[in-house]
Design a protein around this nucleic acid. Structure first.
Lengths: 191, 191
DNA sequence: GTCTATAATATGATAGAC
DNA sequence: GTCTATCATATTATAGAC
């Protein structure tokens, strides 16, 4: 602990998480992160020996946060259909960030794929978390056979909407696509 | 012209285009491009005074190439429905590149958005080219009112499929989503 | 744990010879 | 048009004092 009121390491991960999302991983330098946390670059290396290691920590934090979030969604909503609709609704809930920076998962995996970065596998498992969770909901709805294909479809459309929302910054477009996905989902939720 | 058999400038643009797609814009250095074209870094600056200027040239080349391609598609296919289906089919035609590097348009715009780069607007107009072209096809099909919304929907799903194909490298997934889009399109092409 | 100082390297960019 | 040599800067990373 320190004067900033939290463990420095956790603050670094928090700041790096946000900056990697907003500016990209490679574009974000140690100097920028250090400045955000108000520590010197030298001190930075006491907590993380390399830039790769902080990326690992950021992905780990995102994985943990996502797991927690998905568990909450399950606890708060009994109906699998409602849970899937809530997932789709994120596009509107987070529309400001999405229009500015795209989807945090999709843009990170795309960047790491181009960098051929060692952490790509871990980043992709962020997608897998959502995929598995969505698949489970479709299974609960009785669509066991095609559950994974349906999960991938929901993920794909959400990704595409995020990418185009980032390019065109059109909120009406997001609303339209969310409505379209909900209509499509009706086919699978109404008995 | 030179010993390499083509204008050096054009070769630089070609190499940069490919490298920006495969490795990302920021990650690609002058040294890498110069090596690909087999010229010295010094000579490089005779043709392009800055990295921003070569990005401009690459986007301009992509815009010109895309315009040419869309005109060809129109010339080769009389039916608007067939043209849209051919657009969707790119996901399979270019599946190898898409699985390795994602969509050339979507990944570039995402990167430039995070870099807050001046060329973002020009890159986004690559999306607009496809959007306008798809909108025109839906208009020809008689769906004038919703033509733009339908165009955006086709773009969005294609983007999402490309992003997830890049993450999961699953060809069956691409095939399934292309089939799904074609089924969806039937509603708008059959009178 | 935190700092300053510094090293090693890569990068975008320029100057000037041929 | 092409090259070598060089500059200025930013970046990752280390050493060592407090």
């Amino acid at each position: 602990m320190n004067v900033r009121g939290g463990a420095t390491r956790a603050q670094i991960v928090d700041a790096a998480d946000r900056l990697f999302y907003q500016q990209g991983y490679e574009h974000t330098s140690f100097a920028t992160i250090a400045e955000a946390v108000q520590i010197s670059r030298g001190n930075f290396y006491h907590h993380f020996k390399s830039k790769d290691l902080i990326l690992d920590a950021v992905i780990e934090a995102r994985l943990a946060g996502t797991r927690r979030m998905l568990e909450e969604w399950e606890a708060e909503r009994a109906e699998p259909g409602d849970r899937i609709r809530w997932f789709i609704e994120i596009l509107l809930t987070n529309r400001a960030d999405i229009q500015n920076y795209g989807c945090p998962v999709g843009t990170l995996t795309s960047e790491l794929a181009k960098l051929d970065h060692a952490a790509l596998g871990e980043a992709n498992s962020l997608f897998t978390l959502f995929r598995t969770w969505l698949r489970d909901q479709f299974t609960l709805l009785g669509h066991t056979e095609e559950a994974d294909a349906l999960a991938m479809h929901v993920l794909a459309v959400s990704q595409g909407v995020a990418t185009l929302a980032n390019a065109f910054k059109d909120e009406k477009f997001i609303q339209r696509e969310v409505r379209r996905m909900n209509d499509w989902l009706d086919t699978y939720t109404t008995p």
